[in-house]
Design a protein around this nucleic acid. Sequence first.
DNA 1: GTAGAAACTAGAGCGTGCTCTAGGTCAAGC
DNA 2: GCTTGACCTAGAGCACGCTCTAGTTTCTAC
Lengths: 139, 139
Amino acid sequence: MTRRTEALSIGQVSEATGLSVHALRFFEREGLFLRPIPRSAGRQRVYDPADVQWLVLCNRLRDSGMSIATLRRFAELVRSGPGNEHERLALLEEHERTVRARIAELDASLAVIHDKVITYRGHLRDGTATGLWAPTPSP
Amino acid sequence: MTRRTEALSIGQVSEATGLSVHALRFFEREGLFLRPIPRSAGRQRVYDPADVQWLVLCNRLRDSGMSIATLRRFAELVRSGPGNEHERLALLEEHERTVRARIAELDASLAVIHDKVITYRGHLRDGTATGLWAPTPSP
DNA sequence: GTAGAAACTAGAGCGTGCTCTAGGTCAAGC
DNA sequence: GCTTGACCTAGAGCACGCTCTAGTTTCTAC
């Protein structure tokens, strides 16, 4: 007897992933799923837990700045089955480098911003808050 | 004798800040400068080094994800002179929190991505690269 | 069987942040 | 004076990533 995997409606998947139902349909149009999502007799989408797992990964990739186009490329690679794992790895490695670079950039900006915050606090404490916008050590 | 500050053309400011001349005019329309940029006899913008310094800070704020709207709010506060330093500090502190949260989010995503990378490398090394997309420890 | 919620499609619309176009004007060198 | 390149304005256009609309159908509960 074939074990039925748990069927999920678009609303349930939306709930589970935090993606809106609009976004889920958009993702499908954009070819971001790993398979054609099957439909019920009434043409409604029937997802399964593996789709949700994939979407969770998609969320991580999107949240870390991967574009829809790159995500689609990754999905295409996974869809086309075994044999292109080196390409998938290369794509992920590239994205990892991008994310690390972005974090480094944010760290650098954060240092500048935190410095400003410290300076403002100091001047406010001392009552000498003039000309504080400058990026160099404040006057 | 009044010391002339160094006058800069829009092209020079573009060069110095990395912002395009289009972006500089856009920033001006959006009210992101600390003063009305003066014009030459021929209606050309005449910047000075302080404008460049401000733009360098703007770049840091923008690069770290501050919206144009928030940057405008900050510029308005600075423009309106002394007396609102607490507001400026609050704005910067809020942005600092936002940036830290973003870094934390990226760190979390990076962990997931790096994990995938490691898994792909392992499976490729072992020649067992199947079903590797899953976000859970790969099958 | 009927109400109300949820889903469907195709396609328009929107917020953000520039970027580019069109049609000039201005400045510097020869 | 003329060329060349930088600059001007106002406004249109664009890429991205959804979000929403309109009109219809389907599902669920009573």
